[in-house]
Simulated scan of single mutants.
Amino acid sequence: MTALDPDDVRTEALFVSDLQSSQQPTPEVIRAAVDAAVGRLGEHGCAALVAQEFGEHPDCALGRMQWARRAVRSAY
């Protein structure tokens, strides 16, 4: 099994968190949300929920993923 890219894991974790872009979260809040999601779901659990969301809500998922990627890059 290959190692997961830390930024990918963080992005998926933020994607599945309850945090919203409209909250304009600080880097500290983003990191806390990522830690909470990974702690609750695990790395693979976050990835599974991302896949589920893309399957059920593809119209919303792309924008949220783009936001999550940008937010993770700015917070780490």
Rank of each mutant, 00 (worst) to 15 (best):
L19D: 09
D18Y: 06
L19P: 01
D5M: 11
V34E: 09
L4W: 14
Q52V: 14
F15G: 03
A13L: 02
V16P: 14
P58M: 13
A48S: 12
C46S: 06
S74A: 13
V29C: 11
V38F: 06
R64K: 10
R73F: 03
S21H: 09
F15D: 05
V16A: 14
A48P: 00
A61L: 00
P25M: 10
D5E: 12
R70A: 14
S22A: 12
L62N: 05
A33Q: 14
E12V: 01
P27Y: 11
Q66D: 06
V9M: 09
V34L: 04
L62D: 12
A47D: 12
G39C: 07
M65F: 03
V16Y: 14
T2K: 10
R31K: 13
D8Q: 11
L62M: 07
P58F: 08
H57W: 07
V29L: 15
Q66W: 02
D35H: 00
E56K: 12
Q23P: 04
S21F: 10
A75D: 07
L41K: 03
G39T: 10
Q24L: 06
A71Q: 01
S17Y: 02
A71D: 04
I30Y: 00
A68N: 03
L19F: 07
A33H: 13
M1T: 01
T26L: 07
V9A: 14
R69E: 10
E28N: 13
A47E: 09
T2H: 09
W67L: 08
R40W: 04
